[in-house]
Structure formats: structure tokens, C-alpha cells
Design a protein around this nucleic acid. Sequence first.
DNA 1: TTGTACGCGTTATCAA
DNA 2: TTGATAACGCGTACAA
Lengths: 378, 378
Amino acid sequence: MVGSTSNGESKQTLLKMIVHLPGYPKNEQVLMKKKGEITIYDIASHLKVSPSTVSRALKDHPSIGKKTKKAIQNYAAKYGYQPNTIAASLRNNKTNTIGIIISWINRPFIASLISGIEQAANDAGYNVIITQSQDSYEKEVANAQALFAGRVEGVVISLAMETEKFDHFEQFINKDIPLVFVDRVTDQLNSDLVAIDNFDAGFKATEHLITQGCKRIAHLGGSQIRNVYSERQKGYIAALSKHNLPLDESLILHSSLSAEDGHHCAEQLFGLNERPDGVFSANDTAAVSLIQSAKSKGIKIPEELAVIGFNNDPISSIIEPQLSTIYHPATDMGVIAATQVLKHRKNKEIVKSESIVLNTELMVRASSDRSIHKQLVG
Amino acid sequence: MVGSTSNGESKQTLLKMIVHLPGYPKNEQVLMKKKGEITIYDIASHLKVSPSTVSRALKDHPSIGKKTKKAIQNYAAKYGYQPNTIAASLRNNKTNTIGIIISWINRPFIASLISGIEQAANDAGYNVIITQSQDSYEKEVANAQALFAGRVEGVVISLAMETEKFDHFEQFINKDIPLVFVDRVTDQLNSDLVAIDNFDAGFKATEHLITQGCKRIAHLGGSQIRNVYSERQKGYIAALSKHNLPLDESLILHSSLSAEDGHHCAEQLFGLNERPDGVFSANDTAAVSLIQSAKSKGIKIPEELAVIGFNNDPISSIIEPQLSTIYHPATDMGVIAATQVLKHRKNKEIVKSESIVLNTELMVRASSDRSIHKQLVG
DNA sequence: TTGTACGCGTTATCAA
DNA sequence: TTGATAACGCGTACAA
């Protein structure tokens, strides 16, 4: 197959050698000495004040005298006092942490999503704990439990491919822990959603192909359990319908949209008596594989087959011809999702959940742009 | 002085006695207040045993009677008891969390690295907190502080591009918190390293180009501050030297190796009087851009210009011709790094730090494979 | 403006 | 085999 040159996962033993560094004798002596974990009690006793005064001084409480405050702050700085956030968490019942459940970190869209969440959270003084469901329902449940036990103050979720039950999220709702679903969402729970209009995007993509003159448009779709795929497909169907094109079930192929799936789908489609003249793939990975397969068969793109993908992954602008796609604001979605969580934490009374829908953008590139061709031909 | 933490004498005693003597008034009140936050105290009083018994039963301590244990575990399960990990952390001085400092999550290599860390950590019951330095020294310092304050039990670091001072890591070393540097490492600190042999990889890559007949090989390098780039470059130089090829400084270009940088470098190289006939780029991003630029100028690859990159990013097998590259076991490095952290946590006495060097793999693809061409020509 | 006293939930230590 | 007790470090009513 194409691209098989890149064997991904390493089955070979990669361990080459273990070198023990010369290692200057580490300060074992120093080890004996108890490590200086300075607490407010230490500061208090050394400065002959009470722990509460220290506590207040360190957070600039107005009711502490200027001199006392300065003295305490100076002492703290000098001796490198580090507030124990664990103790504070226990006391305040506040962890300053939000959890994330996603399928796989190492996918371009998800990585950007997380990057956005992390930035927004950090700016607000929050930490972020990331868990991967690996698209498994069981792992998703386990991750939810772990985050719940860790007392995260909110969770951002992009659902695993398999997930059809949502009981594992009820515990958060019962405790008023904000839940924000991103991209792969569900309407089964009354939670915040941050997503794009997948129907519209699927419609736009398909209609674009129709505009380019396609009459037989295939669709590479994902699991219809997940909104992102079912809605994209509905948009595709609606576009066909609007333009009075027949809906041919044999042109709709469902898979997990991996690179291999893309190749398989290509084979299947190219083996049909009546080949499609256009393909709307629900992600870029499968679309790119399909283009590669098409090229290896000598099928001209976009003249014989116009292709559009979804996500605007880096590979989409590397493949030749460059892949038309739907731009999908991953980082923004992350920022907004984190913001929603924090907003709910701030005004706890406002329980109303929102659905935020972001715009997508149709990016027309060579894989579906027949305008030049048209000019040449007629 | 430190261990003394002379905090208030047993102030709880009174209350506890009041609680235990008259029965269990306290717990009922707590239950009224909070939404089903069951604690071991609740279980204890309802089951007429002591909190310590509950605590031990819940963690399968051998010294608890079978019946008691069962009863407690059943009750806990029935009422959905959730251990408060914060309290446990405070008590045990153990957070079960490891921190990560990397440049950017949304880069293929880093995302896979994190994926590996996360999996290994989770399997050991650890959580993972991720921070992005965005290649800024200041942010890296801030992230280190945040992780330190959060009492992480270990840190996995891939250094920011800018970082030249390492004081912000001393605090971890002083407290014997394991530090594991990955990929972008430093030998300034006596910490664990997990890396590849960048010199060897650079050497292999360059020698491969020489084998393909290249005589004037350029190098797109990154900041020489970072080992990964300086060593790749040294490997490049060593390979030229071994094969008696002259070292031409004008063929070595340093940049941040972004896509734009790749295009700029291409322009610069193609503008030379004597063009290079081969390029070794220290990452795939720049290499791919360079190939695109070359193609737009009609320069034939690999015949006129053989190219090899580094990392085996997805784009490397999409570009045409497919990009030769150095495979770099990202996920494995993550798994190993996390494992090292956990190993140090387990046997604290073993302070010796290790350097683990993983194998890379030369992946020859069309962008540098002149064998077909050679056959045709000669 | 400062100090006292207590509890957040868990667990290690000792005692029974 | 079980229980009582004292911390872990912080924050905050309440009191002074």
C-alpha cells in the first residue's frame, strides 16, 4: 500500500544501551538532613506571630499591618516558602484543576484542542490533567472515575468512538461539576457543548463538489453513533437532495477513517461499475489515502474525481494535489471549552448550559477545484 | 526544626470525643450539608467500626477480618464511596502525579511522546499534568514553579528552544524529585536522560546521501543550543569528513525549522552559484517545505537534489516524492521516560541517574533514493 | 490588627 | 484483629 514505507509503531527492541553517567557522588549527606519544607507554622514561630497572621499576610489580606506583612513576605521569599497546594485544596475543597478526556492525544485536531485548553486554563491559574480514552468506552469510564476521584473542578470531553451510555458523567452533574463536551458531543446530557455545525459543514462540502460539476458523489463516513459523523453525512444527503441528485447507498462507506480505511474504501469505490466523480470524506486522513490510491490507478484529480476532506490537518496541504477541506477551529474550541468550565465555576448559580457553535470554513484547494480545468476545456 | 512543624496541640481531641461519645451527630450533620460525599467516617459510624478499620479494609489490608472487610467494602460500593485523594495526598505527602514540560503539544513528535508518558503513568496509577513552554524560557520557568508547587512526584522535560540556564530545576533535585529529560536534554544537570543518538542519526542520514552520490550536501539545522540540533549537525560534519567531502559553511543554515524557514532556506540554497545536490534537514517540516520549493523551481528530486528529513512525521510519507527521514521512537521515549520517573520513586535509595539511548532508523524513501535512477542512467 | 481553635479526610503509629 | 489518636498544612470563624 501507499505510505506503508512508514512502519509506525516500533516492535523492535529499541533499547540500545544503558550508560551509567560518571555521576558525581550525589549529595547523600544532604539527603540525611530533612529537606526544608517551610510551612506557615515555621514562619510564624520564627517571626513570633501566629500562623493565621502569616496565612493572611501571604495573601495580602487587608487587615494585616504593613510592617508585619512586609516582614512575613520577606521571610517567606528569603526562605523559599512554597504554599502547599494540596493542603489548601483539602481545606478549600478546591483543586484548581480541570480534567480532559479525549480519544488520542497524537492526532492533529486533538493536539491543537488540548493546546487551547491548556493555555486558557493556565492563564486562569488552573492545571490540566489529560486522559486518553483510546476510543474505548471502558477506558473513558475509568478516566472519568479517576478525574472524579481527583476532584477536578470541571471536565472537557470529546467522546470515545464507542461510547453510547453516559452514566459515568452523572456523578459530575450530581456534584455540579461543570461538564463541557467538545466536538464529539452528546445531547443526552444537559451539559455545555462546544462544537461546529457539522451538518452545515457537510452540506457546504458536498454542495461545493456539486458546484464543481460532480454528479456521483461518494461519502466516506465514520461511526454514526457520533454526532460529528452522522451530521456530516446528513449534510451530505441534504445537499444531494437539494440539487436533485440521487442518493446511492453504495456510495456511502462507513469506517473508522484511518489511512488504511481510506485505501480500502478507494478500492471499493473504484471497483464499482459506475465510479463516483467526487468524494466527501469525513476526515483528511482517509481522504489523503484515497487520493493516493486514485493516483496510483491513474485517476485524475480533480478532473475525474474531485475530493474534499475535513479538519485541515497538516497532511491536507502537503498531498498533491492539495486537499480541499473544512477548516475546524481546534485551538479556539479548546480555549472556549476551558473558558466555559471556568465561567461555570465562577458563577455557580448560573446552571444554564450553553451550546456554542463555531464557524467552519470551506477551504478550496486543487483536489476539488475544477475552475482551471473548465477554462481550459471550454 | 523542620520536621517538628510545631502545630497546635491536639485540638481535635475534644471534638472527636464529643463525636464518638454521644453516637454520631457530626456525621449526620455533614451528610445534610453535603451532597453525598461519603467519607470513611460515615462508613465507620454506620457500621459501628473505627475509621482506621474502614481505611484498612478499603485497601485490602491483611489484618482485617474477612467479614468486616466484606461488610465495609460492600457498604462503600453501595453508597458510592469515593476516596478523597487530596486528603490522602496531604497525609502521605504523595500526589501520584507527574508533570510534563514540553514546548508545544501540537507537534507530531511531542504528541506521541506525551501519549506514551500518559499511558505508562496511567498504568501505574499516576496522573499527568502537562504544561507547554511554547519554547520560551520564561514560561518554562513558570511551569517548573507550578509543577513544584503542585508537588508532582517527578517531571519529564523536553527543553524549550531558548533555555540555557537550568536553575529552575535545582529545586527538584534538592528535594529528590526525579527529573527525566527527553529528547531535548542537557548534561548540565546530573539527571536521567532519554534520548536518541543524534550524532549517529545525523551521520547516518548524511552518509546515506553520500552513498546516493551527493557531493555538495547542505544542512538545515536548528538552534545549536539544543543537543538535538548540534549533535545532528556534528554527525553531518563527521560524515562529510569521513568521505573526504569539503565542509562548506554556506551550506549550513540555521533556523527554527518551521515551514516558512524551509522555504526561505530553499531560496537561499537555490540562489547559490554552486547549488547543493543533497540536503539533510534536522526536521521533516523544513524538509517538506524545501521539497515543495524545489519542485516549484523544477528541480528534480532526487536526481538533482536528494533530501532527507528527521522525525518521520506524517507529512513525510505524504509529500511527493516521499521524504526519507530518521525514525525517532516518540511513544517509546515517552513510555521509558515515565518508567524512569516511577522507578526512581520506587527505589529512592538508588540515586544513580541513567542515560538511555534509543535506536533510530534510517527510512529511505523516494526523496533520496537514486537507485532506480541510477539503473536507468547507467 | 492579631491570635485561638478547629476541621478538611485520610492514614501511620501505637496500644489493646 | 481492631481502635484511638495524632498529624499532614492551610484557612477561617470567632474572639481579643
